[in-house]
């Protein structure tokens, strides 16, 4: 265990679990497109106990939803640990730092730093994208706030620093493939404590990537949570393959889903594939956990976690 791994940064449940060497489980929890608190509470109730922390997305696919920080606090109130997400699309460095100070003050401890989906894909394509900084710079900025107690500008914080367990995303399937591990190293150097990957269907390619990561010794510097997601139907598989940026759905998965969908057994097959992926990634050296992204299908998570024999979740 290297120094970074044992030195507790935020004291979050997720951080403690990972540092103690337990195989972690995280899952996604999408906030509502309205001001309805109960919607979040309902989802939290379903998911409670089936993961160690839950990602609250930040206007994913550039569609307006309740803020990640506000939703995170509601989730926390419901007795579940959130991972809040922050993108560079909608805020400049002033707003981001301001919001993060607030998030820390609200007791939120896990933070995933992202560039953000382009506004073009969302419900306000006419909006002006900010992109003052990028995700690597965001990670660095959060680390500077936390470890050096300085703002991005270099000025010192006047009160206590926000203590975040810093996460970053990485897509093992994007191009140029060779650069992907290097980019991961960059994020680690910037300050990432954990990584959640893009959804994996192509295990072979993921494995290749992990080999590169391990060769560079990166798996010892960061906790890598492999991204998985149950497919609902052949239609969804097709959509993922063609419309979701950076997604790699192999033909084999496509044909299995097509056959199952035809037999009206799409959901079952989707969950089955998801379980197979979990089974296989667990075996890969350097994988510290899984991240389940059941978009608008949170009910599937308990079933998957149970069948994957990842239930009940350990405590630390």
């Amino acid at each position: 265990m290297i120094e970074n791994r044992s030195d507790i940064k935020s004291g979050s449940n997720l951080e403690k679990l990972l540092r103690s060497g337990k195989f972690a489980v995280t899952a996604e929890l999408g906030p509502p497109r309205g001001a309805d608190r109960s919607a979040i509470e309902k989802k939290a109730k379903i998911l409670k106990g089936y993961g160690d922390a839950f990602n609250i997305t930040d206007c994913q696919t550039a569609v307006v939803r309740m803020s990640s920080i506000a939703s995170g606090r509601i989730v926390l109130d419901a007795g579940v640990e959130p991972i809040i997400q922050m993108t560079c699309r909608d805020r400049n460095r002033i707003a981001i730092q301001s919001d993060l100070l607030g998030a820390a003050a609200l007791g939120l401890k896990n933070l995933l730093c992202l560039t953000g989906d382009h506004q073009k894909f969302g419900d306000h394509p006419m909006a002006k994208g900010v992109f003052d900084i990028d995700s690597v710079q965001l990670i660095q900025m959060v680390k500077t706030l936390r470890d050096e107690k300085r703002f991005q500008s270099g000025q010192e914080l006047k009160a206590s620093e926000p203590k975040f367990f810093i996460g970053a995303a990485e897509n093992p399937f994007a191009d140029p493939f060779k650069f992907r591990a290097v980019r991961l190293a960059k994020k680690i150097a910037a300050g990432a404590d954990f990584i959640q990957t893009q959804i994996i269907y192509n295990i072979k390619k993921f494995h290749e990537w992990m080999n590169m990561v391990a060769d560079m010794g990166l798996h010892e510097k960061v906790f890598i949570l492999a991204g998985v997601a149950p497919l609902k139907s052949a239609g969804m598989a097709k959509h993922m393959k063609h419309n979701v940026p950076g997604m790699d759905v192999p033909d084999e998965v496509m044909s299995r889903m097509t056959a199952a969908s035809a037999a009206k057994k799409g959901k079952e097959e989707g969950i089955k594939i998801c379980l197979e992926v979990i089974e296989q990634v667990r075996e890969i050296r350097g994988v510290a956990g899984v991240h389940v992204m059941a978009v608008e299908w949170e009910e599937a998570v308990p079933e998957i976690i149970q069948q994957a024999r990842l239930f009940p979740r350990p405590t630390v």
Partner: peptide
């Protein structure tokens, strides 16, 4: 770059094309 990244490419870069178009 659609997102004016300084530390690109982002995860949307595929086959030399931008995720935006």
């Amino acid at each position: 770059c659609a997102k004016s990244l300084m530390n690109g490419p982002c995860g949307g870069s595929q086959n030399g094309r931008c995720e935006v178009s």
